[in-house]
Nucleic acid binder design. Structure first.
Length: 279
DNA sequence: ACCGGAGCCTGTTAGC
DNA sequence: TGCTAACAGGCTCCGG
């Protein structure tokens, strides 16, 4: 479920209740969720007593810097959700890992589909090492994007979803960015013009920034840590708008499947270059 | 390098 | 109403 804006929103909401808190214990009823350790006891033993010094985001990962020089890393995958709640408050049925805190509250990791993962590592790069550039970092520029596209024959939609190409973009924001840059999702990387590359860069910035400002897209399961919904679902141009009129030209939005992911675009605003008679 | 398919999970929805 | 299949915002592995 969550992409860069949803994870960023979660990080921002968790800082106030968590920074400066000490983790006193961990419990878990789905051991596979803890990816870095064979058994929960070892994980609990290692994290116990460490204070949360900082919370940041890298791609779609939440990164907690701990006082013992360990790093706690969490990926929400499709259905993960983090919340800080009173230990006495009822637990949602899909909570599988609970971090007890020194103030009577708990950080609870709930995940209906059980794809989400927790890592406790000394070297964050062991988990985060393969990721591409952060799209909202100052270091990311149209020139960087052009260099990374150079010489690649891959279609743009799967390329934007590739976390080693660019970090944090998922299915919603990939479709939205291609719409705002008027690029058909099947266009190949090496077919983009200079103007299109600049437009794509601007569109990526635009949709991710909008997503953060609107605190994420609550289309299916995603909510903020406090359970309230984001607002980005009300501002999508193409994602899951199949058959509905394009806001720019009224043409019905198309849905196709690429690499097993649904892909939405406006066939009028994002034309595919005609090679022969077929398209 | 790139694509497609299977797999990991549970729940909701569309279609018969 | 009830069953079944398709689908879901992520990502990895494997074979071709």
């Amino acid at each position: 479920m969550p992409e860069l804006p949803e994870v960023e929103t979660t990080v921002r909401a968790l800082r106030e209740p968590l920074i400066g808190r000490r983790i006193t214990a961990v419990s878990n009823d789905w051991p596979r969720q803890i990816a870095s350790h064979e058994d929960v006891a070892a994980f609990d033993w290692q994290i116990r007593g460490q204070q949360i010094d900082a919370i940041n985001r890298r791609a779609k990962y939440l990164v907690f810097s701990l006082s013992g020089d360990d790093t706690l890393i969490i990926h929400l995958k499709m259905s993960g959700h983090l919340a800080v709640e009173d230990a006495a408050a009822p637990r949602h049925k899909h909570v599988h890992t609970v971090f007890s805190l020194d103030n009577g509250r708990e950080l609870r990791f709930r995940d209906m589909r059980k794809f989400g993962r927790v890592y406790l590592v000394q070297e964050p790069e062991t988990v985060l090492g393969g990721l591409g550039p952060e799209p909202l970092d100052e270091a990311f520029s149209p020139d960087v994007l052009r260099e990374r596209l150079n010489g690649r024959s891959r279609a743009m939609k799967p390329l934007l979803l590739d976390q080693s190409f660019i970090a944090g973009v998922g299915n919603i924001y990939a479709d939205e960015a291609l719409f705002y840059s008027s690029i058909h999702p099947r266009r190949t990387a090496d077919s983009l013009t200079q103007n299109e590359i600049v437009a794509l860069y601007a569109a990526i910035q635009k949709v991710l920034t909008m997503g953060i400002e609107r605190e994420g897209a609550s289309i299916d399961l995603y909510t903020k840590p406090d359970g309230t919904r984001g607002d980005m679902q009300n501002a999508v141009a193409v994602f899951r708008r199949t058959g509905m009129p394009c806001y720019q030209c009224q043409t019905p939005i198309n849905r196709i499947v690429m690499n097993s992911r649904s892909t939405h675009f406006c066939p009028q605003c994002q034309p595919y270059p005609v090679k022969s008679e077929s398209q």
